[in-house]
Amino acid sequence: MELGRLLFLFSAFATHAFVGYALVRGLTDADPRLGLVLGLLPDGDFLFPADWGWPFVHRGLTHTPLFAIGLLAGLYLVSRNRSVALAGGLAIGSHLAIDSLSPMGIRWLFPLRTAWNPSPGLAVHSPAATALLWTAALGILAFRATQGPSHDRDPTTDKQEYKDEQPTATPDATAELE
Protein backbone atom coordinates (compact mmCIF):
# COMPACT_ATOMS: atom_id res chain seq x y z
CA MET A 1 0.00 0.00 0.00
CA GLU A 2 1.37 3.41 -0.90
CA LEU A 3 2.42 5.90 1.78
CA GLY A 4 -0.26 8.47 0.89
CA ARG A 5 -3.03 5.89 1.36
CA LEU A 6 -1.56 4.75 4.68
CA LEU A 7 -1.42 8.33 5.96
CA PHE A 8 -5.00 8.93 4.83
CA LEU A 9 -6.24 5.80 6.64
CA PHE A 10 -4.26 6.59 9.78
CA SER A 11 -5.69 10.12 9.84
CA ALA A 12 -9.26 8.86 9.30
CA PHE A 13 -8.92 6.16 11.99
CA ALA A 14 -7.40 8.60 14.48
CA THR A 15 -10.12 11.16 13.79
CA HIS A 16 -12.97 8.69 14.31
CA ALA A 17 -11.39 7.41 17.53
CA PHE A 18 -10.66 10.91 18.89
CA VAL A 19 -14.10 12.30 18.08
CA GLY A 20 -15.71 9.28 19.76
CA TYR A 21 -13.46 9.71 22.80
CA ALA A 22 -14.21 13.44 23.06
CA LEU A 23 -17.97 12.97 22.78
CA VAL A 24 -18.05 10.28 25.45
CA ARG A 25 -15.68 12.17 27.76
CA GLY A 26 -17.42 15.48 27.21
CA LEU A 27 -21.06 14.45 27.33
CA THR A 28 -21.31 11.36 29.55
CA ASP A 29 -19.89 9.88 32.72
CA ALA A 30 -18.94 6.63 30.99
CA ASP A 31 -15.35 5.54 30.50
CA PRO A 32 -14.11 7.60 27.50
CA ARG A 33 -12.09 4.63 26.25
CA LEU A 34 -15.45 3.23 25.20
CA GLY A 35 -15.77 6.19 22.83
CA LEU A 36 -12.30 5.58 21.47
CA VAL A 37 -13.06 1.93 20.65
CA LEU A 38 -16.63 2.38 19.41
CA GLY A 39 -15.72 5.47 17.42
CA LEU A 40 -13.35 3.29 15.45
CA LEU A 41 -15.37 0.05 15.45
CA PRO A 42 -17.19 0.46 12.12
CA ASP A 43 -13.82 0.51 10.35
CA GLY A 44 -13.17 -2.97 11.70
CA ASP A 45 -14.61 -4.05 8.36
CA PHE A 46 -11.15 -3.49 6.90
CA LEU A 47 -10.20 -6.72 8.68
CA PHE A 48 -12.76 -8.84 6.82
CA PRO A 49 -11.26 -11.10 4.14
CA ALA A 50 -11.93 -9.72 0.64
CA ASP A 51 -13.47 -12.98 -0.55
CA TRP A 52 -16.34 -12.66 1.94
CA GLY A 53 -17.97 -10.06 -0.32
CA TRP A 54 -21.08 -8.04 0.39
CA PRO A 55 -22.06 -7.06 3.13
CA PHE A 56 -18.64 -7.77 4.66
CA VAL A 57 -16.87 -5.01 2.76
CA HIS A 58 -15.84 -1.50 3.78
CA ARG A 59 -18.94 0.62 4.25
CA GLY A 60 -21.06 -2.50 4.29
CA LEU A 61 -22.71 -4.03 7.38
CA THR A 62 -20.67 -2.18 10.02
CA HIS A 63 -21.54 1.22 8.56
CA THR A 64 -25.30 0.91 8.94
CA PRO A 65 -27.85 2.17 11.45
CA LEU A 66 -29.03 -1.43 11.86
CA PHE A 67 -25.54 -2.46 13.03
CA ALA A 68 -25.39 0.51 15.41
CA ILE A 69 -28.81 -0.25 16.92
CA GLY A 70 -27.89 -3.91 17.40
CA LEU A 71 -24.60 -2.96 19.02
CA LEU A 72 -26.26 -0.46 21.36
CA ALA A 73 -28.93 -2.98 22.37
CA GLY A 74 -26.17 -5.46 23.16
CA LEU A 75 -24.25 -2.85 25.17
CA TYR A 76 -27.30 -2.06 27.23
CA LEU A 77 -28.20 -5.71 27.80
CA VAL A 78 -24.67 -6.48 28.99
CA SER A 79 -24.11 -3.35 31.08
CA ARG A 80 -27.69 -2.52 32.16
CA ASN A 81 -26.46 1.06 32.20
CA ARG A 82 -28.00 3.80 30.08
CA SER A 83 -24.83 5.91 30.31
CA VAL A 84 -22.87 3.15 28.61
CA ALA A 85 -25.49 2.82 25.87
CA LEU A 86 -25.57 6.60 25.41
CA ALA A 87 -21.78 6.68 25.20
CA GLY A 88 -21.84 3.93 22.61
CA GLY A 89 -24.49 5.76 20.62
CA LEU A 90 -22.47 8.97 20.60
CA ALA A 91 -19.28 7.20 19.53
CA ILE A 92 -20.62 4.93 16.80
CA GLY A 93 -23.14 7.59 15.77
CA SER A 94 -20.34 10.09 15.23
CA HIS A 95 -18.56 7.64 12.94
CA LEU A 96 -21.69 7.00 10.91
CA ALA A 97 -22.54 10.71 10.77
CA ILE A 98 -19.08 11.66 9.51
CA ASP A 99 -18.98 8.89 6.91
CA SER A 100 -22.54 9.58 5.78
CA LEU A 101 -21.39 13.02 4.60
CA SER A 102 -18.63 11.59 2.39
CA PRO A 103 -19.09 10.91 -1.34
CA MET A 104 -19.47 7.17 -0.67
CA GLY A 105 -21.99 7.72 2.14
CA ILE A 106 -23.39 4.84 4.17
CA ARG A 107 -26.22 2.35 3.61
CA TRP A 108 -29.03 3.99 5.58
CA LEU A 109 -31.62 1.41 4.50
CA PHE A 110 -29.54 -1.75 4.99
CA PRO A 111 -30.40 -4.62 4.47
CA LEU A 112 -32.16 -3.18 1.43
CA ARG A 113 -29.77 -2.68 -1.47
CA THR A 114 -30.84 0.58 -3.01
CA ALA A 115 -29.08 3.23 -5.06
CA TRP A 116 -30.41 5.91 -2.69
CA ASN A 117 -27.52 7.88 -1.21
CA PRO A 118 -28.44 11.17 0.46
CA SER A 119 -24.78 12.08 1.00
CA PRO A 120 -23.78 15.65 0.13
CA GLY A 121 -20.42 14.28 -1.05
CA LEU A 122 -18.17 16.26 1.30
CA ALA A 123 -14.47 15.49 1.65
CA VAL A 124 -14.86 14.66 5.35
CA HIS A 125 -11.38 13.18 5.62
CA SER A 126 -9.58 16.02 3.86
CA PRO A 127 -6.96 17.93 5.87
CA ALA A 128 -9.33 20.90 6.38
CA ALA A 129 -12.27 18.74 7.49
CA THR A 130 -10.02 16.67 9.74
CA ALA A 131 -8.69 19.85 11.37
CA LEU A 132 -12.28 21.03 11.90
CA LEU A 133 -13.31 17.72 13.51
CA TRP A 134 -10.26 17.72 15.81
CA THR A 135 -10.91 21.35 16.77
CA ALA A 136 -14.53 20.56 17.61
CA ALA A 137 -13.46 17.52 19.65
CA LEU A 138 -10.87 19.58 21.52
CA GLY A 139 -13.55 22.19 22.17
CA ILE A 140 -15.81 19.56 23.72
CA LEU A 141 -12.95 18.37 25.94
CA ALA A 142 -12.08 21.94 26.95
CA PHE A 143 -15.71 22.66 27.80
CA ARG A 144 -15.89 19.51 29.94
CA ALA A 145 -12.66 20.49 31.70
CA THR A 146 -14.17 23.83 32.71
CA GLN A 147 -17.28 22.11 34.06
CA GLY A 148 -15.36 19.78 36.36
CA PRO A 149 -16.47 16.27 37.26
CA SER A 150 -20.11 15.42 37.50
CA HIS A 151 -20.60 14.74 41.21
CA ASP A 152 -24.36 14.50 41.20
CA ARG A 153 -24.55 11.20 39.33
CA ASP A 154 -23.48 7.71 40.22
CA PRO A 155 -22.31 6.20 36.89
CA THR A 156 -22.41 2.66 38.29
CA THR A 157 -26.16 2.80 38.87
CA ASP A 158 -27.03 5.61 36.45
CA LYS A 159 -29.26 7.16 39.11
CA GLN A 160 -29.38 10.66 40.47
CA GLU A 161 -27.85 11.15 43.92
CA TYR A 162 -29.02 14.06 46.00
CA LYS A 163 -26.22 15.41 48.16
CA ASP A 164 -28.36 18.10 49.82
CA GLU A 165 -30.92 15.76 51.39
CA GLN A 166 -31.76 16.16 55.06
CA PRO A 167 -29.78 13.82 57.28
CA THR A 168 -31.69 10.95 58.79
CA ALA A 169 -32.64 11.27 62.39
CA THR A 170 -30.27 9.85 64.94
CA PRO A 171 -31.49 8.12 68.10
CA ASP A 172 -30.65 11.25 70.15
CA ALA A 173 -32.64 13.52 67.85
CA THR A 174 -35.70 11.21 67.98
CA ALA A 175 -35.60 11.13 71.74
CA GLU A 176 -35.89 14.92 71.78
CA LEU A 177 -39.00 14.77 69.61
CA GLU A 178 -40.86 12.44 71.97
Rank of each mutant, 00 (worst) to 15 (best):
A17M: 03
R25P: 11
T146R: 13
T130F: 06
T130E: 07
L36F: 03
S102A: 13
G139L: 05
S94R: 07
A17E: 02
G105R: 05
Q166C: 10
T156M: 11
L75R: 02
L6V: 15
D29C: 15
G88I: 04
V24G: 11
L41H: 00
L71W: 08
T114R: 05
S79T: 11
P155G: 07
H63A: 07
R33E: 11
A145H: 12
F110S: 08
G44P: 05
L3A: 15
P55G: 08
D99Q: 03
L3F: 15
Q147A: 14
R59P: 02
V124K: 00
T114K: 04
F10Q: 07
F56L: 11
D43T: 00
V84P: 06
A97M: 09
P32Y: 03
T62D: 06
T135K: 04
G39M: 00
G70D: 09
H125K: 01
V37T: 10
L109C: 11
T28P: 12
D29K: 15
Y162G: 05
D43A: 00
G121E: 04
L40Q: 01
L112R: 09
P118V: 14
W116D: 10
D29L: 15
S102E: 04
K163W: 15
W108A: 10
S100V: 10
A73H: 08
L9V: 09
P55I: 11
R33P: 05
G20K: 00
A131V: 02
F110L: 04
L177M: 11
A22S: 12
W54L: 13
V124I: 06
L61F: 15
Y21G: 04
G93P: 07
N117G: 11
V57G: 04
A22W: 04
T114Y: 06
A131K: 01
T168Q: 15
A129V: 00
V78I: 15
P120W: 05
T174F: 14
T146E: 13
P42G: 02
F143D: 14
P55F: 06
L38V: 01
P127D: 01
F67E: 03
G4V: 12
R107L: 08
A137R: 05
R82T: 11
D45N: 01
